[in-house]
């Protein structure tokens, strides 16, 4: 599946949610969409799935516009947080029944298997489910739809750690059995980073990074040592954060960390450590104030 996002703008009154965002995604990959609250993540996902028409710009999937294009939207599944279902007064099995009617590739057996693993009873009323169980229902509805593009927007709320790992295992299993595109949005970056092939970061409605996860990690490093040495070393480099303890200082550097960089640091007696996906994301997007 090929997703082409062109110059998206979305305004809500005076507020700008997306500002000229362009992005293209190709191939059957698991992609992580990272961004702080209010960065425009959910708005972007809503537009990709045709839930919303943008103020301007367009989304093309396999070359066709998405909005109101049934041929394309049938191949998409966006699950928002705990999932959109029928009325809350209905039972879990009703939600599955509607999904079976509306989803062309629906796999009811898979849905029932997943709900069983998450210990959600088919006979439960949706309104009586705990937040975690509702998330589990959302996960089941999303995975069993077997859509070419499955988007899970914070579909983990209320799930405890064992249930989240079950979710990750089932997601990976689904991806391996039937390779297709997944977009995952989550604040639990540390937990999901290992199985993300690509990462997309948006901040204040604009694209900040898009690329391979390893490539992303290789661009961030913490340089630690004597404060004066560190200051001299980072001159001319992009520093995204600093920490100081007595005479020791750590500077977080963003950019190409090549062998020349490492050798130089070594001669200067400085330690260089990788930041990891989560810390790098935090330093890149932390509030800067006005």
């Amino acid at each position: 599946m090929n997703i082409e996002i062109r110059n998206l703008h979305q305004r809500f009154g005076d507020a700008v949610a997306l500002n000229d965002l362009s992005l293209s995604i190709e191939g059957a990959k698991i992609i992580g969409l990272l961004g702080r609250n209010g960065s425009g993540k959910s708005t972007l996902l809503n537009i990709i799935a045709g839930f919303r028409k943008p103020t301007s710009g367009e989304v093309l999937i396999d070359g066709e516009p998405v909005f109101e294009n049934g041929r394309i939207t049938e191949r998409l599944a966006l699950i928002r947080e705990v999932g959109d279902t029928v009325e809350d007064s209905e039972k879990v099995e009703e939600a599955l029944r509607y999904a079976a009617y509306l989803r062309p590739n629906w796999n009811g057996e898979r849905a029932r298997y997943l709900l069983d693993r998450f210990e959600v009873s088919l006979k439960s009323k949706i309104s009586s489910l705990s937040r975690g169980r509702r998330s589990a229902l959302g996960i089941a509805l999303g995975l069993a739809a077997q859509a070419d593009l499955t988007i899970l927007d914070e579909t983990y709320l209320g799930l405890d750690a064992p249930s989240r790992y079950l979710f990750y295992d089932e997601l990976l299993q689904d991806y391996m059995n039937q390779p297709r595109t997944f977009i995952l949005s989550s604040h639990l970056i540390e937990e999901i980073a290992r199985f993300l092939e690509d990462i997309v970061i948006i901040d204040h409605g604009t694209l900040m990074f898009h690329g391979n996860t390893e490539q992303f990690v290789s661009q961030g490093a913490a340089v630690t040592g004597n404060a004066a040495d560190v200051d001299r070393f980072v001159q001319g480099k992009k520093v995204i954060g600093e920490l100081q303890l007595g005479r020791t200082k750590s500077a977080m550097v963003y950019g190409e960390i090549n062998s020349g960089f490492l050798e130089q640091a070594n001669t200067d007696g400085l330690d260089v450590e990788s930041l990891g996906v989560q810390d790098l994301f935090v330093y890149l997007t932390q509030p800067k104030g006005e």
Partner: peptide, 16 residues
């Protein structure tokens, strides 16, 4: 009231 969100969130169209 119920058909519109149900349809769109399940990959169908407003037209449908």
């Amino acid at each position: 009231y119920t058909l519109i969100p149900l349809y769109i969130t399940h990959g169908q169209t407003r037209r449908g």
